[in-house]
Design a protein around this nucleic acid. Structure first.
Lengths: 342, 342
DNA sequence: CATTAAAAAGCAATCGATTGTTTTAATTTA
DNA sequence: TAAATTAAAACAATCGATTGCTTTTTAATG
């Protein structure tokens, strides 16, 4: 289907024997155009089914009223909720969202970022992929004078606006809770330590052990158990240990926790009596497994709103300098049956 | 933060004492510019950190290389998967996605559509809200010469490109399966009949009953049970009937099915022995409930890809006329424990 | 070497809206 | 009524890239 010619301000101007500039001003409700004329223009615009060409307008105005979002995966609960939150807040301001997914691939992430830079978006919101180590592409964003906001998985060493979860604290609370419940050997399923969120969660775990006078045991800390399958494997090994853990903190996600639960059930290990389980993210399903899974809610929707509002707030600053600002949202421990030992 | 001046083709032209047109041609790899010059231009572009202003380019070219997507909710598994599928297919072609959510509100949907029209997107992909009855806004899209593709929840009376699920057939198969399993009184939880998908599912249900010589009983068909809560309530009533159903087809979603399961469990009705349950959508959690829930997979990701490819295919048509084309994807029944009576 | 063809670069208009400046028309004031 | 003020509309440049057309340069041919 070939696109047909759209009505422009010139068409309206011609029809009314006016100058395009007057039409533009009328459409923008400027008060330097006569009320009667204005009304006439508006009426004609409606008749001709006119809609402003945002491309032209934005080109002239020098901005795009568009925010680019780059996430590892759109169809992951956490991210789609954050996006929904961003959308909710930006929509009212007449902003549009361009969504890209990196699929956890560094190269695709770079590509996404470049596309967004080309699009001259006003702001880029990103949560980096697990592969991302260097940050040239992020630096590039700023070099182009585009506002950059990192959220959740952020590059610590880059000074930008950030919205994060307090991963360490929530991890600390989760593990402390398990210890208080009477679990003595709490294992940790770690995510890739390249990502700061997973590093922080490990720190929280270690701190909780220490403050409770429990020694950290290397065999109980499993690296890179960040999918359901990897966690299931890890669990099988952990439970076969001469001294198996009596609790597992799946710090990477609820999917990991689910993997743990399934293996435990299959191996006839009773949850929560013989094994406590705690996940991360408060996915919907954690409420309906049997037993239901203790987890940590990240307030993802709210996080999205926070990101958006941070941008709007920052925009009012006329300074060229960005003061790196970090907003940390405190997640909430949701205790459920899987850790109710007592 | 104020945006700084970006490098343009004029900057490059000036620096090299060339005409901007040559720069543009070089950047577009036209063969009417000398190889040496081309190389020089490319090198300088990189040095000056040049990126094309897509706004200007698209304005000139008369399209935006952007597809607008309107869905009821971004953070719903089905929709975020469709979006992921669209993104996956369009990305390779250099297209961008603008995502909007209607929140199931008619007014917001109209607003979204208008924004996208203003943005001069090349195509609008939409799944209508539950409130949407009239279709002026959809007609408006076509009046602007914008390609319109409806998916999943479509307005039947509007002749556009459509990608749908064969709801009737899948429903028919699900109910037939339950009957074959030995269930005799299969109840139906319906969604709002304003939406064609829910009408079709009901038709499939009725056809399955009829073909098996089972009478349709009005008391067993509950309207508007399309959330977990509503379904839970409906289930409580159904199970309190003098002649309660021995199976429930939650045709609206797996969340409904979950509501059914929870109530059944609470009321000590054994699933699947005393009550069979079938949901719709194949949400992740259906696999992990106990018992796991029989459901219908809609191939949502694939559906997204199909939508995108339909657009690209249609674009090659140079005719102004759109031949309304409907692609129907056949969903797949996933049988699990919740219907294994025998 | 002159002529012609082909390659490379330059020129200028265009996409549609916006906006600073100027001109014209209308109104007010002296 | 003439001068001054103000309101309304017109003019023209601009945003940055693209592209049909023209001019210049280079290479090829007789």
């Amino acid at each position: 289907m070939k696109p047909k010619k759209r009505t422009t301000i010139y068409d309206i101007a011609e029809k009314l024997n006016l100058n395009p500039s007057s039409v533009s001003r009328a459409l923008n409700n400027s008060n330097s155009v006569n009320d009667a004329t204005k009304k006439l223009i508006l009426k004609t615009a409606k008749e001709l089914n006119y809609t402003r060409n945002t491309l032209a307008s934005n080109l002239r105005k020098g901005h795009s009223k568009t925010i680019g979002v780059v996430v590892p995966r759109i169809n992951q609960n956490f991210f789609s909720n954050v996006i929904a939150g961003i959308e909710d807040a930006t929509y009212k301001q007449g902003y549009n969202l361009i969504i890209c997914q990196s699929n956890e691939l560094y190269d695709k992430e770079v590509q996404c970022v470049n596309t967004l830079i080309n699009q001259h978006v006003d702001c880029i919101v990103i949560s980096i992929s697990v592969e991302t180590i260097d940050h040239k592409h992020l630096q590039n964003i700023m070099d182009h004078g585009i506002q950059l906001i990192q959220f959740d998985r952020v590059a610590d060493e880059l000074e930008t606006l950030k919205v994060t979860n307090d991963n360490e604290q929530s991890s600390f609370e989760a593990v402390s809770h398990m210890i208080k419940q009477g679990y003595k050997r709490v294992a940790l399923l770690e995510g890739p330590q390249k990502l700061n969120i997973f590093r922080q969660r490990k720190i929280g775990y270690l701190r909780a052990l220490e403050e409770n006078g429990i020694p950290a045991i290397p065999e109980l800390m499993i690296e890179n158990a960040w999918t359901k399958e990897l966690s299931a494997n890890a669990t099988r090994e952990l439970l076969s240990l001469p001294q198996p853990p009596d609790a597992i903190f799946a710090s990477t996600s609820d999917f990991s926790a689910l993997g743990v639960l399934e293996v435990a059930t299959a191996m006839n290990v009773k949850v929560p009596e013989e094994l406590g389980i705690c996940g991360y993210s408060n996915e919907d399903f954690t409420e309906i497994t049997s037993p239901s899974i203790t987890t940590i809610d990240q307030f993802s929707f709210y996080m999205g709103k926070t990101v958006a509002n941070l941008y709007f707030q920052e925009m009012e600053n006329t300074d060229t300098m960005v003061v790196p600002k970090i907003i940390s949202i405190k997640p909430k421990l949701i205790t459920r049956s899987s850790t109710q030992k007592s």
